[in-house]
Design a protein around this nucleic acid. Sequence first.
DNA 1: TATACCAACTCGGTATCCCAAAACGAAGGG
DNA 2: CCCTTCGTTTTGGGATACCGAGTTGGTATA
Lengths: 220, 220
Amino acid sequence: MSQTVQLHDRLRAAILALDLAPGQRLTERGLESRFEASRTPVRAALVRLDSEGLVRRDGRGWIVSPIDTGEIGALGELREAVESAAIRLSVARASDLDIMAIIARLDAARPAHDEEQGVRAGGDFHVELAGLSGNTFMADAVRSAMTRLSRTRWLEVRTSEAREQAWAQHHEIIGAVAARDADRAAVLVVSHIRGTNERLLAFLDAEQRRLRWHGVAIVS
Amino acid sequence: MSQTVQLHDRLRAAILALDLAPGQRLTERGLESRFEASRTPVRAALVRLDSEGLVRRDGRGWIVSPIDTGEIGALGELREAVESAAIRLSVARASDLDIMAIIARLDAARPAHDEEQGVRAGGDFHVELAGLSGNTFMADAVRSAMTRLSRTRWLEVRTSEAREQAWAQHHEIIGAVAARDADRAAVLVVSHIRGTNERLLAFLDAEQRRLRWHGVAIVS
DNA sequence: TATACCAACTCGGTATCCCAAAACGAAGGG
DNA sequence: CCCTTCGTTTTGGGATACCGAGTTGGTATA
């Protein structure tokens, strides 16, 4: 695997794991030495991460994208629009086999032991669900939104009850798809997204001070 | 302006104007000499264009993204979902002033003399309309979709009647927003998008042979 | 004539060098 | 003590040299 791709993945992982704090300044030469690669792949990785919204330009330099509550709200609105449309297409188009496969994966990930698994499982579920529509742009839009959200989404799945609830709602949603009930599936997915996002923003508001204390930049 | 940005714009323009044919192979060194820049900015521009979908990797090399009818259909579906949701938000949130500004721009661009202006005006209108929602992700999604579509959209606005009709429908849509009629606005925008896309795909099907003759790669 | 082999070339990936501009910091003046 | 100023350092942008993999075209041999 090329250094550029490797570096992109490692940087991405470091950002999503909050090893690189939101708002933190990045220098190409600093990353060069931290990841032991030369500037060329570092720069390529930064450009890619920029297009993913995980990193952004700050004047001449680079920063890890701050966590932006306005952005989280906007992403929720986008997800409602895209995912509800995608699920209607899925109900009309997806094969029983593909639906079963998602249910199987959901059951296999049943436990959702910790926060990280919860975040991963949730993200994967929504992307796969959108993928059922057969529309890659919708799936990509959802994947992109989940990526941008994943730095904060662990807040929402901290308790095992929250993870249980998310899992149950996911099951309900895919169940409605399996039953070919488009209206119900769309209503469920919208209310799931809205509820999740509202709780997320509430948690973020509550934890704001503590997170800022740890050097996490949060803007509105 | 930096060479990277300049090169990105020039390459993008060349691709959208079909100066670089869809499917054509690109080499970094070829672009380097064609645009009289060194490989560093060429590479950066290619990476950005890759994330915009105008260029893609082909094995180890690069090609101009082929025109993909399946992609066009999928983009239409995404636009229906995003733009109808955005317009509902716009009806609820946009100020009269901002709405007036769009109407003014629409009137200023009234003539839409030629195909290129028609494509530009249409794209701008839809992006600005989505921007009224205040949700930048929705506006970005629409912008990205319009970019990917713009290489073929001239097919749809070749006749002055088609440009007139598009202009009239745009006026009707923004009128419904101004009247704060969300349902009507959503219905109008969806039927506008669907009609436009269907005509576009029909034209593309009809012109397929001629375009292929000119070296344009069209896949399904 | 057909095929196997090899040399030259092309290409993207990487490392590194230079440059101008911006950021930083120390010293000096108010 | 604060603010300005000027020189040093750092930084991103760009150019280029080198590498190894892959392709091509030609040649020599069977």
